[in-house]
Amino acid sequence: MLILKIGGGAGINIEGIADDLAGAPEPAVIVHGANAWRDDLADRLGVAREVVTSVRGYDSVLATEATMDVMLMAYAGLRNKRIVETLQRRNVAAIGLTGLDGRLIRGKRNPGIQVRQGEKILLRRDLSGKPQGINVPLLKLLMENGYTPVLTVPICDEQGFAISADNDDITAALHRELRASMVVSLLEAPGFLSDPADPGSVIASMSRADVKQWEERSTGRIKRKLHAINGIMEEHPTRVILADGRTAHPLADARAGRGTVIA
C-alpha cells in the first residue's frame, strides 16, 4: 500500500501524477497540501496572516477562524476536488475527504504559544493541533471497496472542532497505523538538497542515521519534515522517497528511485 503526499505548490504536475496512478494502479492513500492556493485566496480576500514569535524565538502563523475559512475553501474545496476530478477523469476511483469527515484524522489542540507583550507573557491559543489517531476502519472500508482516499486538512480535535495540522505529521500518523510499503513525498524540488539553494545538491540515498544527522543540522520547515520522517523510520521502517513533483511523471520517477531514497 502506498502513502502519497503531494506538496501544496502551484508547480506540482497533478496530471502527470494522475497518469502514473492510473497507469500502474495500487491501493493508495493520498495526502495533499494547497498552500499556494491558500496564499492566493487569502491575498484576494484580504485575510491577514498574523505571525507571532514565541518566547523561544520561533515564528508561527496563528490559525484563526478567518484563516480556517480560507483553509476550508482552498484545501478542502478547490484543491481537493480538482485533484479528485483529475483522478476521476482517468477512472481512478478517488474520494476526497478531510480529517474532519468521519473523524478520519483525530488530533489534539496545541496548548498555545507563549508570546511576549511588553513585560507580560501571553498565551496565544489558536486552531492548530497535532494528529493523534486515524479512523483506520473507515479508510480500510473505502480502500477494500476500490476507492482511493484523497485526504487534506482540517483534522478533528477532541470536541469535533476543525483544526489545522502539518501534512508531514499527518503522513507520519497515517503510516503509523496503515504501515505503508512505501511513502512518497512529491515536492517542488528534485529531492532532499544538502544545500537548499543548489538544485544540483540532491542526496540520492540516505540511511536512517543520515536522516537523524540532517535533522539536527537543519532548521525550520526542513527540520520539521525530517523530524516526521525520523518518526516514520523509528516506529515502522519503510521505503521513503522524496521526489520532484514537477516532472512529466513524478510518481513513476519516485517509484524508479529518482530523488532521495531513504531506507
Binding site: 523561544r56 502563523v61 496548548p111 498555545g112
Partner: peptide
C-alpha cells in the same frame, strides 16, 4: 497560571509547553 477570564476572574494551570516548531 493562565488568566482565562477577568469577569468573573478565572485562573487555570497553564498547559505544559511542548516542543515548539514554529509553523
Amino acid at each position: 497560571l493562565e488568566v482565562r477570564s477577568l469577569d468573573p476572574l478565572q485562573l487555570a494551570e497553564a498547559p505544559q509547553e511542548q516542543e515548539d516548531w514554529g509553523e
